[in-house]
Simulated scan of single mutants.
Amino acid sequence: MLKPELQLETMSVKNLSKEKLNELQSYIDTLDDKQGSLIHVLHKAQHLFGFLPKEVQLFVARRLDLPAAKVFGVVSFYSYFTQKPVGKHVISVCMGTACFVKGAENIIDVFKDELGIKVGETTEDKMFTLKDIRCIGACGLAPVVMIGEKVFGHVKKEDVIDIISSYKEEE
């Protein structure tokens, strides 16, 4: 069950990029099985927009001839999809059983303290978003943190500051 702070309302965006909407429409036009391609279309949409505001979800629903509730249901079910903008670097702390037992809760607490945000939030400078995820399938490396596609294994509380600093230095 989702934690209450993660059950956030879908954002609304007044001025969506027509160029990006046209690109999404072009992608949809190439599909043979439009209704069976919902997840693929949502992946493409999130790649284009960075997140899936309600207007994008409605656009997808209309173009695939699906009920908006079905699109919203898929978006809200899968943790990959986000309904609000995320930071440049998404920090995902695994909270699966192996990671939790090895101290993932302490790791996420240090990230929260160092970044000054809660799980599901983005820093004011739009640099970091903090997420907790159920399992990334790297139990032998527990506790595990992912930033983008990079996996950090056997993370200790004292590693968190160095991890954050390495991404700040890139800027």
Rank of each mutant, 00 (worst) to 15 (best):
L24H: 03
L24F: 03
I28A: 06
T30R: 12
D32F: 07
G36W: 08
L38V: 05
I39P: 01
V41P: 01
V41D: 00
L42W: 02
H43Q: 10
H43K: 13
H47S: 14
H47V: 09
G50V: 04
G50P: 01
F51E: 00
F51W: 03
P53Y: 00
P53Q: 00
P53G: 00
P53E: 00
K54P: 00
V56T: 05
V60G: 01
L64T: 07
L64P: 03
D65P: 05
L66I: 09
L66N: 03
P67D: 14
A69M: 14
A69Q: 15
G73K: 11
V74A: 11
S76N: 14
Y78L: 15
T82F: 01
Q83G: 08
K84P: 02
P85K: 09
P85W: 03
P85F: 05
P85V: 04
K88Q: 13
V90P: 00
V90R: 02
V90S: 05
I91V: 15
V93A: 09
V93K: 04
V93C: 09
C94P: 04
M95E: 07
G96D: 10
T97E: 14
F100C: 11
V101P: 01
G103S: 14
A104T: 08
E105S: 13
N106I: 07
D109K: 13
V110K: 11
F111K: 04
D113P: 00
L115H: 05
G116A: 12
G116V: 11
I117G: 08
K118S: 15
V119L: 14
V119C: 12
G120K: 06
G120N: 05
E121W: 06
T123L: 07
T123M: 08
K126R: 13
F128Y: 12
L130M: 10
L130W: 03
K131M: 12
K131F: 09
D132G: 15
I133L: 10
I133H: 03
I133Y: 03
R134T: 12
I136N: 08
I136L: 15
I136E: 08
G137S: 14
G137L: 13
G137V: 14
A142K: 01
V144P: 01
V144D: 04
G148Q: 11
G148S: 11
K150F: 02
K150T: 11
V151L: 14
V151Y: 06
V151G: 01
V151N: 03
F152E: 00
G153I: 05
H154Q: 10
E158R: 13
E158V: 08
E158F: 08
V160E: 02
I161C: 03
I163R: 03
I163E: 04
